[in-house]
Design a protein around this nucleic acid. Structure first.
Length: 425
RNA sequence: GGAGAAUUGGCAGAGUGGUCGAAUGCGGCGGUCUUGAAAACCGUUGUACUGUGAGGUACCGGGGGUUCGAAUCCCUCAUUCUCCGCCA
């Protein structure tokens, strides 16, 4: 949620930013918000005056009762009763205005960073850099990962259908071992880079889901519990970021770096069709998330640092990749700037998104009320950033496709000690 | 799942209807003293909204109620602790 004071202070910037997101009536929206906020202030001022009068009356009544002047007290008491009615109405009005304002604010996406390119579709994303050569696969060794899975017994989608439904793979044998090794590898790299590891709950309550913006925005994308008001997490970002909900941290402790491995659960309603075969789109998948809570002046440096970390991972896995800067039309609702990392999948002959690294500035912390105390003792909203480092399924897909050989699948050197073998056969 | 007790400021802990945003202690910050430090002493020390300012308003686990007036009374929910039951 945007801070209304940011909007008030930087009208022109906000307007230009929203237009980048192809929101044509940005000015109308913003003016409406400011008007609502004006109303909010006006109502509160009047209400405070009435309350001040009520408090003063109560004090007088108390004194009059004590000194035995019951008649005088009775007169004031009557005035107080009348005031109470007015106060009650004003409070209703205040509540309505506040709710209205919040509702409107929730409709406004974050203001894109100045470097975000113009554009409407993923084609308009800017390729920042590329790394690695496309592997050339022999004609008899160019199986897509779903065929390789059958050939080497890596995972089983049909078995998952039997147990649960489509999109819930069962990893088997060395496939399971590879999965476990990759998780360990990614976590080790993250902790070596200074991220503190956490194992969070996989179910979160409504407050948490709301604070990071999953609700109400992406309602229906999460699995919801029947008996309790809990949601299966769509990403570790939700519990990890919420660890700091309502917290006041010391400026010297910034940046705070956190990482966590969790399975992620997504309903992916309405996203069936082409390009979802095999591991390309799942309802349950494994992901290692990195999160940073940063000083507002440093958050773009931090973003670059996080991108560099993710790049180091795909490099270690020897996967050709490219870094994209998302355009205004493709940018997530809550982020100001997002880099996507895509690896090249040699058998499918396409790029697969394996990581998305975003700066949210204060968009999340406003609702989280996550602040830091600066040197002067002022409390200011911190910035949050997060990214996948990495999501497993598409990494696994590219990894096995790109490294397939007649007698098995070669493991990159960096992960051999983690997975426990140098060839999957 | 059942029974009981508790929840007050950074922490500990008073406060059972009015002048209580809240005693006191510890901690924090500033000062006096000291060559320096400690001790001692003095002062100061919650947050948010609003107002140019003086100030005003709200907040004693959350929500609701009674009352002219609630930290204090009532209802409800949550959490923690103890006991019982169940259990990896």
């Amino acid at each position: 949620m945007l801070d209304i004071n940011i909007i008030r202070g930087k009208m022109a910037l906000a307007s230009a930013g929203l237009k980048k997101r192809n929101i044509e009536n940005a000015d109308d929206l913003l003016n409406k918000l400011v008007a609502l906020d004006d109303t909010r202030k006006r109502v509160q001022t009047i209400l405070d005056e009435k309350l001040a009068r009520t408090n003063a009356l109560s004090k007088q009544i108390g004194e009059l009762f004590k000194s035995g002047k019951r008649d005088e007290a009775e007169i004031l008491r009557q005035e107080s009763v009348d005031l109470k009615e007015e106060v009650s109405q004003l409070q209703d009005e205040q509540l309505k205005v506040l709710q209205n304002l919040e509702e409107e604010l929730l409709q406004i996406p974050n203001i894109p960073h100045e470097s975000v390119p113009l554009g409407k579709t993923p084609e308009d994303n800017e390729v920042v850099r590329k790394w690695g050569e496309f592997p050339v696969l022999a004609s008899d060794n160019d199986l897509p990962h779903w065929d390789l899975a059958k050939k080497f017994g890596i995972f089983d989608l049909e078995l998952g259908v039997k147990l649960t439904g489509a999109g819930f793979p069962v990893y088997t044998g060395k496939g399971a071992q590879l999965q476990r090794g990759l998780i360990n590898f990614f976590l080790t790299q993250a902790t070596n880079a200074g991220y503190k590891e956490v194992i969070p709950p996989l179910l979160v309550n409504e407050t948490s889901a709301r604070a990071t913006g999953q609700l109400p925005d992406k309602e229906g994308q999460m699995y919801e519990m029947k008996e309790d008001p809990y949601f299966l997490i769509p990403t570790a970002e939700v519990p990890i970021t919420n660890m700091f909900r309502g917290e006041l941290v010391e400026e010297k402790d910034l940046p705070i770096r956190l990482t966590g491995y969790t399975p992620c659960f997504r309903r992916e309603a309405g996203s069936y069709g082409a390009h979802v075969r095999g591991l390309n789109r799942l309802h349950q998948f494994d992901k290692i998330e990195i999160v940073q809570i940063a000083h507002p002046d440093k958050s773009y440096e931090v973003l670059e640092e996080m991108v560099a970390h993710v790049e180091s991972l795909v490099k270690a896995l020897e996967l050709p990749y490219r870094v994209l800067r998302l355009c205004g039309g493709d940018l997530g609702f809550t982020s100001t700037l997002t880099y996507d990392i895509e690896v090249y999948s040699a058998a499918q002959k396409r790029w697969l998104e394996v990581s998305s690294i975003s700066n949210f500035e204060t968009y999340q912390t406003k609702r989280l009320m996550l602040r830091y105390k600066d040197v002067d003792g002022n409390r200011k909203l911190a910035n949050t950033l997060n990214g996948s480092a990495l999501a497993l399924p598409r990494i696994l897909a590219a990894l096995i496709e790109n490294n397939q050989e007649p007698d098995g699948i070669r493991m990159p050197k960096a992960i051999q000690s983690f997975v426990g073998f140098d060839k999957l056969s």
